[in-house]
Amino acid sequence: MSHLPDQPDPWAFLQSHTSARIARGRTGHSLPTRALLDFQLDHARARDAVYSELERDALLAQLQTVQLPVLPLHSRAADRQQYLQRPDLGRKLNEQSLLHLSGLEDLTGVDLSIVIVDGLSATAINRHAGTVVSRLAEEVRALGWSLAPLCLVEQGRVAIGDEIAHALQAETVVVLIGERPGLTSPDSMGAYLTFHPQPGLTDESRNCISNIRPEGFPYEAAVQKLLYLLTEMKTRRLSGVLLKDEFDDNLLTP
């Protein structure tokens, strides 16, 4: 046999219509080697993202421009294995972090707390949080808002932001968190916003912006939408399902 029986699909031109893995060809009933390895590479990246860790020094360097103290915090989930199996522990701060927060002095109510959480992809935070936080802080300061110290949380879930922002006496909270990695998007960052954050709130109290990354919802669009939602929350004094999102995402894309 002069060549391997790898049969290309004559409908490959349809690939322009979808990101689905169509027309990948076959050898016998199986995927050709190249398509197989492409898939394995994407899955490997997603797996690495789940086990990635916050690059604290690099993040601190990027966040210097914000000129706020940065508090390193940790959830009650001891490690990734426990984090994955016990989402309840990822929603609460460990003892040391609670002590850290309760030891803070001179807390007076602030307008906004920004909480940065590794979630299911620290890679997403390492790549995108610095830029988004810097730009968001710049914009809200221009509105005259006060900011709580930044918080950098390991092994955290979304709801941990409510506990933190409540302790920091913040009126609103933005939680930036690494989303569950997709096969072709290992670095999507999500943003969850709550008005009057307090422990025990559930998803219906939050608003969400998903897939923040240059190839998804780009930084500047995300910052503008965050500003819109935060301003609406403060004006209407509520968040979540009751806050109708009338922001037109399309206005932002050229």
């Binding site: 689905a20 997709g182 096969l183």
Partner: peptide
């Protein structure tokens, strides 16, 4: 049966046509 076992809307992996 999902193209390449990769659901690009629901973001999970299942089984493919192959």
């Amino acid at each position: 049966g999902i193209p390449g076992a990769d659901d690009v809307m629901l973001h999970y992996q299942s089984t493919s046509f192959h």
